[in-house]
């Protein structure tokens, strides 16, 4: 009897958690979109091939958005992720084709390059006290310029199959980028929820001055989150280069806005202190499903941008209204 009581209480607690979850709004939006698309285009949307294609497509944005989410929780912003995405992709491909390094070493170099850009962003923001918008605008230009400079504008192809596996392969019938996204989401979720540094990230975003007075190393936390954001942009860039089988200096143009949009749709606040790892994934999923839906419904490209804008505003407004009511 007592056991039954415990079980009922657990169930109620789970239901309450789901009900109060900040992600519930996004889940409702996704379900509504899926239902509407199923009605509109039928099996085209629900086919396994299409669903896998959509998930793989948004996984690259989601990986980038997870890093961006940490930055936004601290009240910052990182505009350089699209350029770092391209730079890390071309550095990795060059390491394999021009410098003849192994796939592992090349990927490592690519990741380090992204981490380094993130670290620089953190230094500029904390030590030079540059506003995040300006500091990352600068590194956005530097990373893009370096990508053009080292490649001369030419794409880098002829990549080994073992590298392409990162973007095109499958692990237990699930595309590798999706597996990568899930693993990274779990790692970041653990970091934010279960580690002291993770809690400090929220503290810094909630009230930076209070965090400083209470002894939190605010600068170190900021450098850490920008470095992680750079690393995530690099991982997304490398995975995309592997998916296309080519590294390009042009990749990732405007992706910073997609990453920021995914985080905000996912329920994070631009003023900091609020957000979780599931949010940006759901935000990226909403945008991915929306783009896919417009393609499946054969909506003319000349109208798609306007529709995407309307849906983003509706999604965020719905979430805000729901939270206000709560």
């Amino acid at each position: 009897m007592e056991l039954n009581g415990k079980s009922i209480s657990n169930k109620t607690s789970i239901l309450n958690r789901v009900k109060n979850s900040s992600s519930l709004g996004d889940i409702i939006i996704i379900l509504v979109m899926c239902t509407l698309l199923t009605v509109a285009v039928g099996n085209k949307f629900l086919s396994i091939d299409n669903l896998i294609s959509v998930c793989r497509q948004f996984s690259f944005y989601a990986i980038m958005a997870i890093g961006m989410c940490c930055v936004i929780i601290t009240g910052g912003i990182d505009l350089s992720v699209g350029s770092v995405f391209a730079f890390s992709g071309v550095v990795t491909c060059m390491a394999m084709t021009d410098w003849k390094l192994s796939v592992f070493s090349s990927v490592l170099i690519g990741c380090i390059s992204g981490l380094a850009f993130g670290f620089l962003n953190g230094l500029f923001i904390t030590k030079l006290e540059l506003p995040p918008f300006i500091a990352t605008l600068g590194t956005m230009s530097i990373a893009r310029g370096l990508s053009y400079g080292i490649t001369g504008g030419y794409p880098i192809g002829s990549l080994p199959d073992s590298f392409k596996f990162i973007g095109l392969g499958y692990i237990a019938n699930i595309p590798t980028p999706i597996v990568l996204m899930i693993v990274l989401a779990m790692v970041f979720s653990f970091f934010l929820r279960k580690t002291i540094a993770g809690r400090w990230v929220y503290a810094v975003g909630g009230n930076e001055e209070a965090a400083r007075i209470s002894g939190i190393k605010v600068d170190a936390i900021k450098i850490l989150v920008y470095s992680l954001c750079g690393l995530m942009a690099a991982i997304a860039g490398i995975a995309t280069a592997a998916r296309l089988g080519v590294g390009q200096s042009t990749a990732g143009q405007g992706y910073e806005l997609d990453a920021i949009a995914a985080v905000i749709i996912g329920g994070a606040s631009v003023s900091g202190g609020v957000g979780n790892v599931i949010g940006p994934i759901l935000g990226a999923a909403i945008m991915g499903i929306l783009r896919n839906g417009l393609v499946l419904m054969s909506v003319s490209a000349y109208w798609q941008q306007a529709v995407i804008g309307v849906v983003i505003i509706l999604a965020v407004s719905f979430d805000k209204l729901r939270n206000k009511k709560k």
Binding site: Q248, A251, V299, A301, Q304
Partner: peptide, 11 residues
């Protein structure tokens, strides 16, 4: 069919 755009982006 209605025109689709890749926005000059390979991916």
């Amino acid at each position: 069919l209605p025109v689709q755009t890749g926005e000059d982006d390979v991916q």
